Simulated assay, not measured.
Amino acid sequence: MRIRDDGAATAAEALRRQDFARLVDPFRAELLTHCRRMTGSAHDAEDLVQETYLRAWRAYAEFEGRSSVRTWLHRIATNVCLTALDGRRRLPVPAGLPDARPEHGDSAPGPLDGDAGRRPDRDAPLGLSADPADIVVTRDDRRRALTVVWQHLSPRQRAVLILRDVLAWHANEIAELLGTSGSAVHSMLRRARAQLAQAAPTPAGAEVDDLRLRRLLGEYAAAFETGDVNALVRLLTEDTVCERRPAGTRLDGPDEIARFLEHCPAMGECRMVPLSANGRPGFGVYRRSPGGEYRAYTIDVLTITGSGLERIEVLEDRALFRTFGLPMTLAGDHV
């Protein structure tokens, strides 16, 4: 009779779990983004990623490496999200993020495969600057894409559009995942793109060229980091609005905003990390702690027009830092 070595079995299981964690952990941030984009809920994204990892662990013994780990995880995450969306009548804008509205400085979106010859590296985890959302929001014909998708596309249309035009999957891969045909995938993709093309045009005179946009964002970050209230106020329009959520505080105009900034604890005591939210530029704001490190403080989302900074939305939910793939702390010597 064979006697089971429980100690050896336990050790083997521990090594298997370590190997699994080593393979999948680098993809957590982009899976959070994928689940948030698919379901339209920042708060649900964390639970959906946990469910994705649970399903992946259960199937890990059968994973034979026929696809990359990244593709395998996105396939599981997409199915998890489609299950979560089943039966919903409306796909909401992500909770805690700014309400969907046309972004200033965008041209009307066209087909999302305008750069079909440029495919992202599908085998490597995406860093902050290469997040799939940035592929969409940094191209002139794509900036409204995510907002429109959240509001108007069915779950399967959303999956097809994101997998094809953001993650660069082939139609046959998407068809296999959804249990349909390649022609059905192309049909859903055409309908989804047609809905994107119906986005409202940009108001006349609201365009902001890339050079000016970069300059304004740089000056905004520098003003906060150095505590220069006057420099920041110079970026504002005459009717700039600043809103804090969920507190519901609203400041109207440069004078009210300046008075608030004079007592803002983050002014001159923070570091700013750029991000994109619903196609709009913003920053993760980290406030210096007594120990010298910088801790997650707020998410600032900006609306910029040709006249300057028109709207500042300050999101005080620190859980959103993980949703955007940002760390909760930065070292004291971070630049």
Rank of each mutant, 00 (worst) to 15 (best):
W72M: 08
S307H: 15
H263Q: 15
A100M: 01
H104G: 05
R37C: 09
V335E: 12
M1S: 14
E46D: 12
E243K: 02
H34Q: 12
M328R: 05
P290I: 12
D5I: 06
P201E: 13
L178M: 06
W169M: 03
A11M: 04
E293R: 15
R295Y: 00
G268K: 11
Y60T: 05
R259P: 04
E219R: 15
E64S: 13
N278H: 06
C242S: 04
V229N: 06
L216K: 06
G279D: 00
A8L: 15
A59T: 01
S67W: 12
A168N: 13
R58E: 14
A159G: 10
V160L: 03
D19I: 08
R245I: 11
A11D: 10
D44M: 14
E103Q: 09
N172G: 08
D113V: 01
G227V: 10
P155H: 12
V149K: 11
L97S: 00
N278K: 03
P120G: 14
P120R: 14
R70Q: 10
R164H: 13
R90A: 09
V241C: 01
L189I: 04
V136K: 11
F27P: 01
D140V: 15
D255F: 10
I174T: 06
L146Q: 12
V233S: 10
A42M: 04
H34A: 09
E51I: 09
I162S: 05
A29D: 15
L178S: 02
T180V: 07
L82W: 07
G268Q: 06
T329Y: 14
D252V: 04
V335H: 04
R143T: 13
R295G: 07
G253R: 02
R191I: 10
R144L: 06
S289E: 11
Q198N: 05
L91M: 11
G117C: 15
D300I: 01
F63W: 14
L326Y: 06
A159F: 08
D134I: 10
L315H: 12
H186K: 09
M188A: 13
L232Y: 05
A258C: 13
L97T: 03
N230I: 12
P94F: 09
V166P: 00
P102V: 08
L112Y: 00
G291I: 05
P155D: 01
P274M: 13
R287A: 15
G182E: 04
P274V: 13
L82P: 06
S276D: 08
R144F: 05
L128Q: 11
A11R: 07
D210Q: 10
T180E: 03
T180I: 11
L309Q: 05
T240L: 00
G96T: 00
M328I: 03
A296Q: 05
T303A: 13
G182L: 01
S289G: 06
L128W: 07
A100Y: 10
R164M: 06
N230R: 15
R143V: 12
C264S: 08
M38L: 15
R234Q: 07
I312E: 01
T52Y: 08
